[in-house]
Write a protein that binds this DNA or RNA. Structure first.
Lengths: 206, 206
DNA sequence: ACTCTTTTTAAACAAATGTTTAAATAACTT
DNA sequence: AAGTTATTTAAACATTTGTTTAAAAAGAGT
């Protein structure tokens, strides 16, 4: 057939949309089929099952996610500048894909990911040499002495959470999408200043 | 009958456990019945439906959540001390109920909460006078000039996210539960120092 | 035009879902 | 002990679930 443009891609796009908004358990394959404007059997014709389709979407999401990080880490900047740039880029990225952090964390929490994320996620980042750069910066006293894991938690908390809690924040403060958007911009500025100051203290002791 | 101790409570406990770990969509009423060690019909006898039961659990979770905040805000301390205490208490609370942040945010995201959270959540906090205290602290220059909403986002990000991303962090760094626990303690210390320094700058400009 | 393969569909499948029914069992009242 | 109510159960219910089947439709090759 080759109807118009790859049906396979259309299904993937629809599945992504539905999975992202409703979650794996929260949607049926018929929901996705309806979004495609087609039949349920077609999904299993192209992808073997609902689970396989989800895994594909999940891996794609992780890949997109990873991409935006790698770009920054691969750049030729000092760690302080990389940190600042990372926060900027991540915010820009999540502004366009606000459902992504929730989607990923939820999928991992429910073990919907067959393989561990470590090899597909940790290693590509390590290859950018960012961890080595971090070690050196700490050795030179340019950066606060704290574990890589705690740096990660600190960064991710401030960058991911605001997008995961959009609805909660809106309901809690009774604000609309546009106002929240402004708050997110303000948050980005706060996070940048706060984190940079904390991670790279200007008057380090002794 | 009054078999042993309130069947109703046993069902609620089981439902809480199952809903927390698997989510509303991720579990069936039979999962809950099995956890109780009883029949499905019993759930609908005490609670009208799966949805009603969930709402009850959700409201209970929100209430517990709120309780731990109110306590701190109602205390007779300066804002700086309250902030520090809040972070401590919240961390202690989530150490014992690590699924709670995810559960609440997920429920709100999927509109599983009938009523808006604002009245049940915002107002009790406002009644502690914390917002007024905050305004005054900012007027006196003791606290950084930033919106209540951004303060909220900043605090919640650093306190909630680490518990929501437990599995992700574990997989990413390849660490066990005990190690993560230590990281969370370290994170608490970092957050306290970082946030206090940022929210209450010692050398405020002009 | 005819064949062969690929794509799409409607229908059916068994299993699982939330809920209800009616009967059984236990507890309470007198 | 008998009668009444409250609790618990097994079974059935109508839908919905993910998946499969077999036929129809569309494309490509000759």
């Amino acid at each position: 057939m080759k109807r118009d443009l790859s049906t396979e891609e259309k299904i993937k796009a629809a599945a992504k949309k539905v999975f992202m908004t409703k979650g794996f358990d929260g949607c049926s394959v018929r929901d996705i089929a309806k979004e495609v404007g087609s039949n349920v059997a077609l999904l299993n014709y192209y992808f073997r099952s609902k689970e396989k389709l989800f895994e594909l979407i999940f891996e794609g999401a992780m890949s997109d996610f990873l991409q935006s990080i790698i770009e920054v880490f691969s750049s030729d900047l000092a760690l302080k500048e990389k940190t600042s740039l990372l926060i900027d880029k991540e915010f820009d990225f999540f502004m366009e894909h606000p459902e992504l952090p929730m989607f990923i964390i939820q999928a991992i929490q429910q073990n919907k990911n067959e393989s561990s994320v470590a090899p597909t996620f940790f290693e590509p980042i390590e290859k950018t040499g960012i961890f080595q750069q971090l070690k050196e910066a700490q050795a030179k006293g340019e950066m606060r002495q704290m574990s890589l894991r705690n740096i990660t938690i600190l960064l991710m908390s401030n960058v991911h959470y605001p997008f995961m809690s959009k609805k909660l924040t809106q309901q809690f403060h009774g604000i609309d999408e546009a106002t929240l958007q402004q708050d997110l911009f303000a948050h980005k500025a706060h996070v940048k200043e706060m984190l940079i100051n904390y991670l790279f203290p200007q008057n380090q002791p002794a």
